[in-house]
Design a protein around this nucleic acid. Structure first.
Lengths: 145, 145
DNA sequence: GTCCATGCAAACTGTTTGCACGCGC
DNA sequence: GCGCGTGCAAACAGTTTGCATGGAC
């Protein structure tokens, strides 16, 4: 947590881009949150700390952070994007169709699927999104179907 | 292929909706295509057979067909929707980041992942999207990264 | 005849872009 | 000081909706 901003600056410099307070702030907010925020929600939280940041900058920053591999975009069954700071451990998402809750999970089987795909099709895998939807433990009894 | 329209009519009636030439045509075109069309492309193919069908109707029809469980919507790494007629066998998608090619595949491991998730989290699963991206066999050498 | 479905155009949502100014380097 | 990054507002793409007419049942 200490050399935090420096790492970001490093990454930006390597890509020939500049460090700005807005970029630091966006990444900070994203990492502090429990993840899966959409651009609006993220922008609201950013504005709480610096009201002058614009939504356009949030989008542009997210785009840069994605280029750097620090942020990922997910759809999670919705039509608009949800953004998440990348962590070391890969993980996937379950969303409840009723209450919207998101449960994260991991499974080593995903790696096996990727490997099988590489061998069978000769492709190279760079990323995998797994999104399961259904009803969470609390909602599955309430919702008949 | 014979009792084709009748099955659709059956499904529609059960949902209290009417059978129309547009609905039949949209589903027909979608099943005849290799899948993964977006609304515009689908509409273009539909218009080739009946120029009077509007894009709005295509969207409304896709919505109905999704309610009936006959059509699925995927994002496939893009921001807009891609639509596919549902088949008996589940399958998942790989898309090439360079040429855009879509490869369909199946894996029994997905079922195991779902099952594990149900047991661990107590959820009920209704659907799973697995989207792998990377470079296809033809593109992976061309694209350094 | 009733009422759902359609075509059209306008509205809407999420996202991107042109431009002039400001700030990192 | 040079040039990228920013804020603002306008543009944009995909999708949805209000309304009057037409067709399914």
């Amino acid at each position: 947590m200490g050399n935090w901003g420096e790492q970001l600056q490093e990454n930006l410099r390597a890509a020939g881009r500049r460090m700005t307070s807005q970029r630091r702030l966006v990444l900070q907010v994203l990492e502090a949150s429990d993840g899966h925020l959409d651009a609006d929600a993220l922008c609201a939280r950013v504005k709480a700390r610096d009201p002058d940041v614009s939504l356009a900058t949030v989008y542009r920053t997210l785009s840069v952070l994605r280029e750097l591999g620090l942020v990922e975009k997910h759809h999670l069954g919705e039509d608009h994007g949800h953004y998440e700071a990348v962590r070391e451990v890969p993980h996937y998402h379950f969303t409840c169709r009723r209450c919207g809750q998101v449960i994260e999970f991991d499974s080593s089987l995903v790696g096996q699927i990727e490997q099988g795909l590489c061998e069978r099709e000769g492709v190279r895998v760079t990323g995998t999104h797994l999104h399961v939807s259904g009803y969470c433990a609390r909602c599955k009894d309430v919702a008949a179907r």
